[in-house]
Amino acid sequence: MRLVAAELVESRQILPGQWLQSFHAPELASGSRAGQFVHVRTGDCSGLVLRRPFSINTADPGTGIVTLHFRTVGRGTEWMTRVREGERLDMLGPLGRPFEVDPRSRHLLLIAGGLGMAGVRMLADEAIRDGRQVTILFGALSAAHVYPSNLLPDEVEYVVATDDGSLGHHGYVTELVQEYEAWADQAFACGPHPMLARLAALAVGRRDRLGVAKLGRKRGAGKADPLGSTTARRKSFLQVSMEQTMGCAVGACLGCTVIGVEGPLRVCREGPVFAAEEIAWPAL
């Protein structure tokens, strides 16, 4: 975690109301992992007192380029779209804990709803770099809101669902999951809260349902890893990236909590990635 002056090198609207901005920030590009986020300071002139958290969309240590993908939802994000190339933004990052991929996982299922693509996009890069196979299931309102496939690595399988059926599967992206459930070794999701809750419900009991053998030595049999630990997350089938309105993003203000099974969890510190078992999901 450090304060970085990131220079905007490119800004473009890739979808209606959704922007992809590239920043030159070598410290962030080389030090961050998929699932982590940055806290971006907006201009003082606009009377905005809080920073804005964004998932790191991609990070390229070679060029020092970090990209952020966001939707204009308020004055802070609108201000960001007006930043010009060459200007430097004050970013605090990388923050939060990353996705934890089991080293034995060969097939990764990434599930993104709408802007949730920004949360899992970098994991696709990391997984392909590590020689894993990646399938991205993507859900959007309509064809006009589908993330352009040319922005994804060539190696990924990209499956689209739209709510109105204008492209790909007609329905929710969660309906596609069953087809890939057996193929996937691990699943990683980011998107609207109801989507994540649905996925968490689908993932329950998967191991028994599919008859998946437990691999590896039965080390410390019966002794479970503490909930929320890196090892426990690595063994978890479904990891979700959550969002919440945020204050400090370093764990000081306790503003960005979500309710976990063992009490409140800070999205900025214990998250933004959680194993699905850690979250107290609302009953569906």
Partner: peptide, 22 residues
Amino acid sequence: RFKAPAGRPRVETGGSAVADLG
């Protein structure tokens, strides 16, 4: 290292910390 390339308009982003950062 982060100085805007010459010729590009340099606009104060408001935060004094930005100027301080480097």
